[in-house]
């Protein structure tokens, strides 16, 4: 009976540790999604010359939540008609940002991108997008390092915490 209880405690705490570590990996997962979304946007702009609203319609079907929510909301705002694309971009960011695992660095990068989106010729749009991608790449590196560091730690912390509890209770 004691043994069964001990196993249950260890299992539960390990599971908690895994869940905890997932929140750490979520940021780098979403960063990857955002990067691939911006890469699609670059292709749509440079090769397709697709208007932003149409391009965002394509993108939100390609990437997963919550990044797709941002592009969907941006598309809807453009179709409704806003004073500028920047305005629509910022409003969509305000709406969707709270559902993402992004930090303030990503917000700053996206803000900068939004300031010029749709207002320049193809070359400059491409340069801006590539700049944003480079910045995001750096953030992703950092997020991945954190993930490597903390993911294992949280997992082992969960397991070892369970073991500690069992030892204390025995």
């Amino acid at each position: 009976m004691k043994l069964l209880g001990a196993i249950l405690i260890v299992l539960a705490s390990t599971w908690a540790g895994v869940e905890w570590s997932r929140t750490v990996s979520e940021r780098s997962r979403q960063l990857r999604m955002l990067k691939s979304a911006l890469q699609s946007l670059e292709a749509e702009i440079v090769y397709g010359m697709t208007p932003l609203s149409v391009a965002c319609g394509h993108i939100c079907r390609q990437v997963g939540h919550p990044v797709s929510w941002f592009f969907d909301s941006f598309r809807k705002k453009l179709e409704e008609g806003h004073s500028t694309a920047y305005d629509a971009w910022m409003k969509s960011m305000d709406e969707v940002w709270k559902y993402t695992a992004f930090k303030s660095e990503e917000k700053e990068i996206m803000k900068q991108l939004g300031a010029t989106i749709g207002q320049q010729d193809r070359e400059h749009e491409q340069k801006q997008l590539q700049l944003a991608l480079i910045h995001l790449e750096r953030e992703e590196q950092e997020a991945r390092n954190n993930q490597m560091k903390y993911e294992k730690m949280f997992k082992s912390l969960g397991f070892l915490g369970g073991v500690l509890l069992v030892i204390l209770l025995i």
């Binding site: 702009i45 010359m49 697709t50 932003l52 453009l78 806003h82 749709g118 320049q120 010729d121 193809r122």
Partner: peptide, 9 residues
Amino acid sequence: SQYSLYALE
């Protein structure tokens, strides 16, 4: 330009 100046090149 539908908010997309590059599309008007």
